[in-house]
Design a protein around this nucleic acid. Structure first.
Length: 376
RNA sequence: GGGGAGAUACCAAAGCGGCCAACUGGGGCAGACUGUAAAUCUGCUGACUUAUGUCUUCGGAGGUUCGAAUCCUUCUCUCCCCA
């Protein structure tokens, strides 16, 4: 994997870069659609590729490990082949599930024991077997197993949690270096920087992570309940510590405004379920603000979904029709809304790249942030 | 013609003397959702009020009672069974 820093914004920490993997090139800043169980919910891979222009998508180790399971994934020749996606893939380790399935898991120094949310069966992730699992899945970028610390954790808990994440990280990195990819293309292992909302812990976590000299670094444990200003502050704390020729991935973020603000603070990669989940629930993101398409006011609005949108759905369908589908509970509603939102998110980062190149990113960003937060 | 059942808020449907402005669904209206246990979840849904509260409601009219959606009389309408 190769990362080229193409341009630095003189007025902010924003960066324009290019990440090259064996499955293709990713122009950064980039948004990565989330496809937890081997599918970006409601979206054909064909549309992801041609309509939305996704450059890389995610999968999730915990979910794929449970279903379809490693045997099938291995037999399929890895996730790319299994799901028919020839562009880059990134898998999350399951660290977020350590956080979100908190009632069904137990943490030890050794690793994390889960109860499956599907059948209650017991499974253990260790940093080592988690790397092996992600070798079998075969993502281009694999993530370290971590504990995603809740945003309201106190300093004491956050410090202990970080120590565990760091111990796991060292073991995972070692195991990664001792093993080979299974399918003939390169994989990269990204550490995840934790530390909750505490600058000292974040600094410590970032310094520790870079000491392991990996190909990219992720920031985790943000947008998990902490005030949004703290999130930006943590990104700022970490920014100078990470070598500038390495990509930075802010995990799980976020709203369009969050993404622009984070790009301004030096983030290169994002993922979030928001465009798909909120889309399924009737929320549309546009350059002019947020639409709740279920609202009564759209019932006889026969204008296109989004005249500024880049997806075919934006001009193909009307607001009134999409509202009708949404209220009738039709599957197509979820598909259209998800496709629109993902196309918007990809457009958002595409425009960000253009404005970084043009040198007017900061001014542009400030104008857009105001607009995209409107409620239409 | 004879016998029976029933009329409750937008719809369906509980309630059968006070705990009823009225259970529960649906519908409607609005909100939430940030490395997806989510095509999910939450709130409101007689009027006026921030709220305590006040006022007008359970087919119509009249009555019994301290008190009625609930009991009685009567009218209107609906449905079912037998001729």
């Amino acid at each position: 994997m190769k990362f080229e820093l193409l341009k630095k914004d003189p007025e902010s920490n924003a960066r324009r870069g290019r990440l090259t993997t064996d499955h293709g090139t990713i122009e950064t800043p980039i948004f990565m659609p989330v496809g937890t169980v081997g599918s970006v919910k409601g979206i054909y891979q064909r549309d992801l590729d041609n309509d939305i222009n996704a450059q890389i998508i995610l999968g999730n180790t915990y979910h794929l490990y449970l279903r379809p399971g490693l045997k099938i994934l291995n037999k399929a020749g890895g996730l790319h082949k299994f799901i028919h996606w020839n562009k880059p893939l990134l898998t999350d380790s399951g660290g977020f599930q350590v956080f979100s399935l908190t009632d069904n898991r137990k943490l030890t120094n050794e690793g994390c024991t889960f109860r499956s949310h599907i059948d209650g069966s017991k499974h253990t992730f260790t940093p080592e077997n988690n790397v092996e699992t992600q070798r079998i899945i075969g993502a281009d970028i694999i993530m370290a197993l971590d504990e995603c610390t809740p945003g309201n954790a106190d300093h004491n808990y956050a410090a202990k949690s970080l120590a565990l994440t760091q111990q796991w990280l060292e073991r995972g990195a070692k195991h990664f270096d001792e093993t080979e990819p299974l399918y003939g293309y390169h994989q990269s292992y990204f550490p995840i920087i934790q530390g909750c909302i505490y600058p000292d812990l974040r600094r410590k976590a970032a310094e520790h992570a870079i000491s392991l000299e990996r190909e990219g670094y992720a920031i985790g444990g943000l947008s998990v309940g902490e005030p949004i200003e703290k999130m930006y502050e943590m990104i700022e704390v970490i920014h100078p510590i990470i070598p500038e020729n390495k990509p930075r991935y802010l995990m799980g973020v976020g709203t369009p405004a969050n993404i622009l603000e984070s790009i301004a603070r030096g983030i290169d990669m994002f993922d979030c379920v928001m465009p798909t989940r909120n889309g399924r629930n009737g929320m549309l993101f546009t350059w002019n603000g947020i639409i709740n398409i279920r609202n009564n006011k759209w019932k006889d609005d026969f204008s296109p979904i989004d005249t500024t949108g880049t997806s075919f759905v934006d001009s193909y369908y009307t607001k009134a029709y999409l509202r009708h589908l949404m209220i009738a509970g039709e599957m197509l509603a979820a598909q259209i809304a998800s496709e629109h939102n993902l196309a918007f998110y990809l457009d958002l980062v595409r425009e960000s790249r253009k404005h970084i190149e043009a040198g007017d990113f900061l001014k542009w960003k400030n104008e857009v942030v105001k607009k995209v937060q409107n409620r239409l």
